[in-house]
């Protein structure tokens, strides 16, 4: 077990190291999220109340699109030089490979989200900093969920020729419950609507349950996905 966690840590560090050197998916994801935020700000001419009402949905739509670009590279990064073969034939268990990759994707996605959040506030004039602790908790939970499901489907699609197209098709339907929770909670935090704030607890619970189910399921099945 200890060796597995050490292997997961080594894989996460390797993924972060190579990504920070090449900035392949980080640059693409960050630029994409900023462009979408700018485009939406031009596309919708909404009043202040309406804008606040859709703010959570807008933010998580951008984050989930940007997330697909990050997780798509997760296992695809192993394809040049057949590095995936070396990982799979190593003594590192499948769950450790998956965990390492998910942790790396989580942190990369977090960077994109935390950098684009102030721009979101700026473009839409939304006061996003009113409950920083709770907002950070929601971002952590939803980002982990996107990373887990995304990396799992990245493993499923790694050997498919059209994986860039297949991944979003598989990913977004799975993320619906998580995104509903994240959107509801984020909108409540931005609007400060007392009714919405009251139901925030159940949305957070939904995200926790989603993460528990998908994390344990993915850790269990990933070895069957990687070795066919």
């Amino acid at each position: 077990m200890r060796a597995g966690f050490a292997a997961a840590f080594a894989i996460a560090r390797k993924d972060l190291q190579t990504e920070l050197r090449t900035r392949e998916s980080l640059t693409a994801s960050l630029s994409f999220s900023l462009v979408i935020l700018v485009l939406f700000s031009f596309a919708f001419d909404l009043g202040r109340e309406e804008l606040y009402a859709i703010s959570g949905g807008l933010l998580w739509l951008v984050y989930s699109f940007a997330g697909a670009l990050i997780v798509n590279r997760s296992f695809a990064r192993e394809l040049p030089n057949d590095c995936l073969d070396v990982l799979v034939s190593s003594p590192a268990p499948g769950w450790a490979i998956f965990l390492g990759k998910t942790v790396a994707a989580f942190f990369l996605l977090l960077i994109v989200e935390l950098v684009s959040l102030p721009f979101f506030g700026l473009f839409y004039n939304i006061s996003w900093w009113q409950s920083p602790g709770t907002l950070l908790l929601v971002i952590f939970l939803a980002t982990w969920g996107i990373a887990v499901v995304g990396v799992a489907f990245s493993a499923v699609t790694v050997n498919i020729r059209l994986r860039e197209l297949m991944l979003p098709v598989l990913l977004y339907p799975m993320l619906i419950p998580l995104l509903l929770g994240a959107i509801g909670t984020t909108t409540a935090l931005f609007t400060r609507d007392p009714e919405a704030l009251k139901s925030m607890g159940s949305s957070i619970q939904l995200m926790i349950v989603f993460n528990l189910i998908y994390t344990s399921l993915s850790l269990y099945i990933v070895e069957f996905i990687l070795i066919v």
Partner: peptide, 11 residues
């Protein structure tokens, strides 16, 4: 194991 690919990370 040494397969057809070199199995090392370019970056």
């Amino acid at each position: 194991y040494l397969g057809h690919g070199i199995g090392v990370y370019d970056d």
